[in-house]
Amino acid sequence: MDHDKGLDADGHFVREGSLDRVQPEFAGLVDAARAAIVETYGPDRLHSGYLYGSVPRGTARPGRSDLDLLLALHRPPTAADRADADRTAARLDAAHPEVDGVGVLLFDTATLLSEPERYDLGWFLACLCTPLLGPDLAADLPRYRPSSLLARETNGDYPLHLVRWRGGQGTVRGICRVTVRSAFTLVMPRWGGWTSDLLRSAEIAGSYYPERAEQLRTVALAALDPVPDESARRLVTEELGPWLAAEYTAVHGTKAPRP
């Protein structure tokens, strides 16, 4: 069941996406996104652009999946940069019914390559993002292995998320997605690999914590449901989440503070 752990022969993560994996239904959207980014930002602002998520993994579902983009700018993003990103995302979403939403993350190259982000945003770009435009920043980042340090720096802030969710923030799907990802990274160093498949992530985490397996599967299904049941929020905030926050801190510690 777990032969494919997303690692090369030396035990480093293999980049999970590729433009070659984009399904034909989404090829026109990817081309349109590339053109829109170039038109909007140009070489003065844009260093490079990346896809991440189900589209470059080749697992997107027409009409249900979204398109996720990360743009690396030469300088820290401004309010104008973010407004341009929102307009670009809205135009792409309106023109392409094959996706249910377009999201754009903006960062500057200095942040993406910084020491504090080496095992968070840097890992995310190097391992989970697919180059779309410009020079690939992954060339300036290390190769990564499953480790407790990586687990801590990627999801060691889960307790802070839980506080916000209890205050009413977050969508049900978003809350469930982060919870399943965090449950998986909790056990990632022990399992020794990576997967972005939410159901598989829940199954792997549940194999280490069988008393939580059914809850994890329920939350994973809610994360994939276009209209999830609101009860999934309560399951996370009142039962599964408090346990996960405490266990994560006990096993991996707390994520290093950011400025």
Rank of each mutant, 00 (worst) to 15 (best):
142 P>Q: 07
154 T>M: 15
153 E>L: 06
124 F>S: 05
123 W>K: 09
158 Y>A: 03
108 D>Y: 03
135 P>E: 06
157 D>Q: 10
140 D>N: 15
117 E>A: 09
119 Y>P: 05
141 L>V: 15
102 V>W: 14
113 L>S: 00
142 P>I: 10
133 L>Y: 12
121 L>Y: 03
117 E>R: 09
125 L>V: 12
114 S>T: 10
132 L>W: 02
133 L>E: 03
117 E>G: 03
112 L>M: 04
127 C>G: 09
160 L>P: 02
120 D>K: 14
135 P>H: 03
149 L>F: 08
103 G>L: 15
143 R>K: 03
127 C>E: 05
113 L>W: 01
140 D>C: 14
111 T>Y: 02
115 E>S: 05
153 E>I: 02
112 L>N: 04
131 P>R: 00
117 E>W: 07
104 V>L: 03
138 A>S: 15
107 F>D: 06
115 E>G: 07
116 P>Y: 12
144 Y>M: 12
137 L>G: 04
159 P>H: 05
152 R>D: 03
104 V>Q: 11
157 D>K: 07
146 P>H: 02
111 T>M: 07
140 D>Y: 07
159 P>W: 09
116 P>T: 08
126 A>R: 15
149 L>M: 08
140 D>H: 13
113 L>A: 04
138 A>V: 01
138 A>N: 06
144 Y>S: 08
155 N>V: 12
141 L>N: 07
130 T>A: 02
133 L>M: 00
127 C>A: 12
137 L>W: 11
144 Y>F: 15
139 A>R: 10
161 H>F: 13
155 N>A: 14
158 Y>V: 04
160 L>N: 12
137 L>S: 10
125 L>F: 06
142 P>Y: 00
142 P>T: 05
145 R>M: 07
115 E>M: 12
121 L>T: 07
151 A>H: 05
150 L>P: 06
154 T>Y: 04
143 R>H: 09
154 T>C: 13
109 T>S: 08
110 A>M: 09
156 G>K: 10
124 F>R: 08
142 P>G: 08
127 C>P: 11
140 D>V: 13
131 P>C: 01
116 P>W: 14
132 L>P: 00
152 R>C: 14
136 D>Q: 00
145 R>C: 10
143 R>L: 09
104 V>R: 07
132 L>R: 04
148 S>M: 05
152 R>M: 08
127 C>H: 11
144 Y>K: 13
116 P>M: 04
161 H>V: 14
161 H>T: 11
125 L>D: 00
122 G>C: 03
103 G>P: 07
139 A>N: 14
147 S>Q: 00
161 H>L: 11
161 H>I: 08
135 P>C: 07
112 L>R: 07
130 T>W: 06
153 E>V: 02
118 R>Q: 13
133 L>H: 09
112 L>C: 01
134 G>E: 12
150 L>A: 08
157 D>G: 13
148 S>E: 09
118 R>P: 06
155 N>Q: 14
161 H>G: 03
114 S>R: 00
107 F>A: 11
102 V>I: 07
122 G>Q: 13
147 S>G: 01
108 D>A: 13
108 D>Q: 12
108 D>E: 06
118 R>L: 09
137 L>V: 13
115 E>Y: 11
128 L>W: 04
130 T>R: 08
106 L>Q: 01
125 L>P: 02
148 S>Q: 14
141 L>R: 05
154 T>A: 13
156 G>R: 03
